[in-house]
Structures are given as C-alpha cells and as structure tokens.
Amino acid sequence: MLMHVINVGHDVFKANDKIAEHNKKHLDEHGVFALNIMGAIGSGKTTLIEEAIKKLKDRYRIAVIAGDVVADLDASRFEKLGVPTVPANTGRECHLDANLVHRSLEQIDLENTDILFIENVGNLICPVDYKLGEHVRVVVVSVSEGDDIILKHPMIFKTSDFAIIHKVDIAEAVSVDPSTMVDDVHSLNPFIPVLLTSKHNEASINEWVDYIESHLK
C-alpha cells in the first residue's frame, strides 16, 4: 500500500469571502449601499430596519434581505412598508453566508435599489466569520441582554463598523447602565461609533438614519 501526503491549503472561510467579494462588486456596479445588520434574537434588528425604512423610503429605493431560520415572518413586516423583500431561509444554519446572499440578490432589482438592508440571523457569534459583500457591518445589542453581553462576544464588536445599543428607555428597569456598555464596546474597538437608541425616542432613530444617509451623499 502506498501512502501519500497531499498538500491542500484550502481555506473554507476564504471560499465564502470570494463569493462575498463578488457580491460587493455586483452591488457597487449598481450603486447599491448594503448594510449587514447583526445582533441577538430580540435585540431589535427588525424594528431598527423598519424605523429606518419609514424615514428613508420616500427619498431612496430600498430593498431588504430578511435572513432567519424561518424568515417569512420578518419579511412580511418589511413588505407591509412597501419595500421589496427577499426572505432568506437558512433552515438549520445560524448565520447568513455569501452564497445565500448571492442567490437572494438575483431576486432583487438592483438597478432600482439605493439601499439594501441585510438582516442577519439572530446570533452574536456565527455571523462574525461570514462576510456577505456588505459595505458596513452593524451590530445591534439591547440593554435587556445584560451589561456583560459585549465582553462575552468580543469579535463581533471588534469587526463591526457601527454599534447600536438599543432599548435604552428600559435600561433602568433592567438595571443596566448604557454608558458601561459603550465603554465595553470601545475597549474592544476604540474608534467605532456607538449609538444609543430607543424606538420611542425619535431623535435617536434620526441619528441612525443620518448614519445610513452619510454613506449615500
């Protein structure tokens, strides 16, 4: 019997990154700005996207890829706002990957889209390793997840471009000091902008919208 060692050197994540680069090129060719919205289940990702859509849809053409293990429920929330939405069902998977996004992009009229929201699966760990082709990675965390949630999930904060600490209106009720959470984010990623938001504080939603628009001017 002959033994033979084969050098392979195949990086499983690089294979995903290649498709992500292809997606990004495709988006750039059509002038689409894409945000990858990541965060835990119940952190407020869907609400923040909804609120942004309400304020932006009269001025920009918006589309959504709603990723979830069963994506149809969230997708119907976006469709109610009158924006084209593609549900990306991941089934047993805990994250979106570039290939799923690639298939979803085929169902979107990119020529007539300015902003693409990609809502990732509710999870602070698995989406980190998978680029999708997005322009910015936004991480959403709510005060109700507890003020140790950030240091428990360091890589998502280290590798994101924008952080939102959401539901700050109930911070006191859940005994959390949002400023501690901001400090934790900055201890991992010193220059990342951090925004405190609440659905019931319109000024904070406007700041979120301003952040999105700052990439479109």
Binding site: M1, V5, I6, N7
Partner: peptide, 8 residues
C-alpha cells in the same frame, strides 16, 4: 484551512 490529507 484543510492543510494536508494523507491518503492510502
């Protein structure tokens, strides 16, 4: 990375 595979 799948670095090496040793086969028979």
């Amino acid at each position: 990375i799948i670095q090496t595979i040793e086969v028979e």
